[in-house]
Design a protein around this nucleic acid. Structure first.
Lengths: 160, 160
DNA sequence: TCAAATAGCACTGTTTCAGTGCGCTTTGCC
DNA sequence: GGCAAAGCGCACTGAAACAGTGCTATTTGA
């Protein structure tokens, strides 16, 4: 339904909080004291983010989580992909493995696959250009537009 | 799950087909003969598109559907909104009516609402700039980037 | 008058999602 | 050494959304 899940919402809450306190270890308890979120679920989400290498965990009494890298190097695409899987626009693309690149189960001359793929890549490119840093800065406009031909602007197919 | 539904997929199939045969009335049967889609569901989708004023229906023996306007004037945002509702990024925004603009049930100083809202608007802006015409032209790159400061580029907050 | 097509409404099985239970392991601190 | 606080792992449940279908009525061209 073209909508982010609660898991992603909670993940963003935690990550933005960590970006605000970069370098410090924050526990699930601490986050729960700032935001009315189910701590148990938040813990699950943080665990997944740790597995993906987005945050680093520290066990033990004074343990918790912290960003594994600078907030500038963490993209929204990475977060979303971690917490809700690959953002397939339609299930049509799901059978990509059992079918050749050309044909899907929709039609011989699939005029719809290409558009759907481009939509997917457009959204993905948008999220690829959105860093956690830009999300944690409410005032500064998010530089979701052209990356000015600088860093890794690789997977952007939609932008002509 | 940041993924379009089957309804939208089928809707796009039908709409692209109509864009390919603009001005002609096409029936659900005809579409079903071109693409292996559940015709019953396709009929439901077309009905909704008709209610939204995206296509026009013609009843009777030789009836069917045709685009209500030029494919250049039909946006992806309109299609998606019609077939799967408002693309709320998170449910947090769903309580916008019962709460003031400032506060949601997440936190007093909700540092997460603004980012989420911007993501939503970014995706929406992307779909707003995508016309059915551009989707029906597989070769021509979709002009999903800046609208060159021309038409109604109103709701785009993300693009600096 | 018949056949083909849309209109309307409700229903069912499946999948995904949100949230929780429970026990185990690690580790700082007294 | 032992307690308490924190993360780790797995599995489970109720609710909601989704995909697809059944059935019947209405319209309309031939």
């Amino acid at each position: 339904m073209l909508q982010l899940t609660k898991r992603t919402e909670y993940g963003l809450i935690a990550l933005v909080h960590m970006a605000d306190h970069e370098g410090r270890v924050v526990s699930v308890r601490e986050i729960g004291e700032h935001y009315p979120v189910p701590r148990r679920l938040m813990a699950e989400v943080l665990k997944d983010l740790a597995h993906a290498g987005i945050v680093e965990s520290q066990r033990g009494a004074t343990g918790g989580y912290m960003l594994a890298r600078s907030a500038d190097l963490i993209t929204l695409a990475e977060i979303v992909t971690t917490l809700e899987g690959e953002p397939l626009i339609t299930n049509c693309e799901g059978h990509a493995d059992k079918l050749a690149h050309e044909s899907c189960d929709i039609a011989p001359t699939c005029r719809i696959r290409s558009p759907l793929q481009r939509i997917r890549e457009g959204i993905h490119g948008l999220m690829e250009r959105t860093t956690l840093r830009s999300l944690s800065r409410p005032s500064i406009p998010v530089p979701l537009r052209a990356p000015s031909a600088t860093h890794e602007s690789g997977g952007d197919v939609l932008t002509a």
